[in-house]
Nucleic acid binder design. Structure first.
Lengths: 338, 338
DNA sequence: CTTGCTTTCCGAAACGTTTCGGGTATAAAA
DNA sequence: TTTTATACCCGAAACGTTTCGGAAAGCAAG
């Protein structure tokens, strides 16, 4: 591989001048620069990023730290999509990008700080770590900038990007109400999970703002599982024929409800409108395709990457960002005709 | 960050000795080593990989080059799974891992060689590039080792890992025959595609080895599309009630056949056994869940990573590897009872 | 006493950059 | 003429490692 020195020799200029020419400094003659450029190209010179990083004390690389990059996470397009976002944005900003997984054997031996130090990471974006992961705590304390996706923790070198969980859930319920539904069931997941409470709040608030009394019997618990959701909704739908719509805290539970309707001979959306949450891959293939509120992990990844780079470069930017969840209209919801 | 020099000062030994102690050379006294180790730990020293790579002329990082790391590829769990495999294996082998995407704006400016040179990549694994992608050609020519997944090209610094396409397809057909099916339809995709020909060959050969005459009317063309498969199989199933099983060259086409049976009032698998190919996500959710032959991208990723590291380290290993596709038994196939 | 072998250590160069602090012309101003 | 400014260039040090080629000290053998 051609080095600066090679170009220097071939061109007759000093290493310094070659470097400055190639880096666009203005204290080099146009002719010299052209000549150097030409020769550099001829020799197929490309700068050694390692050497550059070493002296500049910054590597222009960002780490993407995830938990459990494993086979299991395959179904979870969420992580993959954020990854894509991060990657795209970083390559646009001309940064490198390395993938760090907390499950590697290394974690036992290495602290988060060492991980960053070794590779001279300029910053890191973190996704999907458990709230009590030691790396997470270290990251927040650390001096190397990091931004978290979907974990709202702010700090001097720390930012986060998350989505408008509450607003989007409310929007979904409002949508049902606008279509004339008054008797709306809510299929909740594990009731203590963060997202569950948020979505339940949304449900409650929108009902209230529309003057609809909350009926405790209408809130079910499907435990974020398809089978459980089906089992719990079967008797419910039998006993509550007045219910015309169901808002589900996740798509998988929505699928469970869908199955229940099928077994009862009900038609979706004519007899029951169903709206899910997550926009899982399957939701658009199922019949009828599921109306759902989808997050935009790709966008979150992009924003996270952008933010971390901004922090790295010392720009004064807000350390929080939001991306809007979107209500994705498909065919499992219709007007209430009763 | 603590450097070697810091440890040197704090311990009273030279930088050389510190380096050698930490790297396990045997020309350093046990006591000295212990002391140095202790102090290094106290100072939180961790080696600067960049500096090390610079002098050792090898970065211990492998690139994973994919085409089109974009939102669209999200559906394609294939790429993600290989990525996981590569990542897992590399972290086990103590290599770093950077993600390279060919669609970045950079590709216009940078050759493949430059990409590798800049980051001092030791090797790269390549997945999903079109056969005529300029990067692919460069990669094969290049002196930096690379291994391709699912692109059988062998070279001095090049290896590949692929799956036993033919064998696994044959296995699928054999499975049907073992269950007593004699009249087996074959739903082919675009007939000139590589995989199509392989799967067709499998079908033909297994029929032949079981003394079943090939009936040209039994091979259909569904063009790898659900709708096309359905349309072509509707009249076929009507005209050929003797057919008890269908082998489809892709899951989506299998879904099309499934639809056709539904419209005809046939039951799967009682009236028609169906076997697909690809193990798409949907295949396990559809009703009945689809028996299919699935590839193992995670394993391919692992093997590819392992191979490229072996080549990098100059080990004499075979430059090709295979991972077995697996017949995934679900509920769309049963014994022939006629 | 000299020689040679171990053991333990270290100085200095090297890797490929960037950058600080100049230097040398040439032209313009005094 | 001398000073000052400008345009262009360069030497050398620095970044944090690794490694080559010794060197000093201790000890055994001749």
């Amino acid at each position: 591989m051609a080095t600066l020195k090679d170009v220097s020799k071939a061109s007759g200029f000093s290493v310094t001048t070659v470097s400055r020419a190639l880096n666009g400094y203005d204290d080099v003659n146009k002719e010299t620069r052209d000549k150097i450029m030409r020769i550099a190209k001829e020799l197929g010179y490309s700068p050694n990023i390692l050497a550059r990083s070493l002296v500049k004390k910054q590597s222009k690389t960002i780490g993407f730290l995830v938990t459990d990059l494993k086979r299991e996470s395959v179904k979870d397009n969420f992580m993959f999509e954020t990854l894509c976002g991060v990657s795209d944005e970083l390559s646009e900003l001309d940064y490198e990008f390395v993938l760090l997984s907390t499950t590697t054997s290394k974690q036992k031996n290495k602290t988060y700080g060492q991980m960053c130090a070794e590779r001279q990471l300029d910053g890191v974006v973190i996704q999907g770590l458990k709230r009590d992961d030691p790396y997470l705590l270290e990251a927040i304390e650390s001096t190397v900038p990091c931004v978290l996706v979907d974990i709202p923790v702010e700090g001097i070198n720390t930012g986060y990007v998350t989505s408008n969980q509450l607003e989007s859930a409310k929007q979904a319920v409002r949508y049902l109400i606008r279509l004339g539904h008054r008797h709306i069931a809510f299929m909740n997941g594990a009731p203590h999970a963060y997202v569950s409470t948020v979505r339940y709040d949304a449900y409650r608030q929108v009902l209230h703002e529309n003057g609809i009394d909350l009926n405790d019997e209408y809130v079910l618990n499907g435990d974020f599982e398809e089978a459980a959701a089906k089992n719990v909704s079967l008797p419910f739908l039998l006993n509550h024929p007045e219910v015309t719509a169901a808002f589900c805290a996740s798509d998988v539970m929505a699928l469970g409800v869908l199955q229940a309707t099928r077994e009862l001979g009900l038609n979706v959306p004519e007899d029951l409108s169903i709206i899910g949450f997550d926009n899982i891959l399957l939701s658009q293939y199922v019949s009828p395709p599921l109306t759902t509120v989808g997050q935009q992990p790709y966008e979150m990844g992009k924003k996270a990457a952008k933010m971390v780079v901004s922090i790295v470069e010392g720009k004064d930017v807000p350390h929080e960002a939001f991306v809007n969840n979107q209500l994705i209209l498909r065919e499992s919801v219709t007007k209430n005709r009763r």
